[in-house]
Amino acid sequence: MGFSDYMLSDSCRQSAGSELRFDGGQAAPVAVCNPGRLSVAVADGAQARLVLSHGAGCCSTVDVAVGDGASLSIVELFVGGRSTMRIAQGAASRVALTSVVAGDGSAEYRTALDGAQAECDLGCVFLAGDDEHAQVKIRVEHNVADCRSASTVKGVAAGRGEGRFEGMVYVAPDAQRTDARQTSRNLTLGDEARITTLPQLEIYADDVKCSHGATVGQMDSDAVLYMRQRGLSEDAARRLQIEGFVADVVMRCAVEEAGEALLAELNAKLERL
């Protein structure tokens, strides 16, 4: 089942340009295709799950407010399109996001941790095929003390594709005991593929645990040899290695029901890289 089938089969599908309010407990995930201007509110203590998909030419702005003690899980797929999502989190709220930019496309996240003990986990993958531009931008603001954030971004570029990651972790002067982690790991396939990664930290508090790391590497030829020695074709070995590279992000899909469909989209894209 492809991602679009998942979107269509969902009874709670919303039209674009709307407002979504979640007041109750755990319900079925709500799916929105090409959201446009969308605002999402999760009431204090409520739980919600959201599945967004973006197509070529679509430009969206999504504003999300997550109340105290609330939790929101988001899965996003870009098959083209651009989107900026602004997330404001209340105290002890939790956001988990899995996002895949498959080809041309841009995903931007601006998360403000405004209440103590708020947590966010962002996992993003971008894949730039030949002549494509894929990018992910993340800004996480730790505005108060005792919050935790973790972003893992995996980028793959092939052919003459270009990928870009910009990450910023901001820690306000009073945001003591912040725990903020950001990793950007990238794989370029071939000499003409390019990935730029710009992880940044801006820290004004002194009692913090912050880490960031960025790597850009190439296909591990020893691993390809190893797999071929077991009978896999060179193409299959390469694909399996890329799948493995992004697996930790997509296997932990924030909305479990959408996991398989997301993986199918990702694999379809990898076939074409």
Binding site: A223, M227, Q241, E243, F245, A247
Partner: peptide, 12 residues
């Protein structure tokens, strides 16, 4: 033997 992150033995 070579390590292949993210690829499970079973799948391989």
């Amino acid at each position: 033997p070579v390590e292949i992150p993210g690829v499970t033995m079973a799948n391989f």
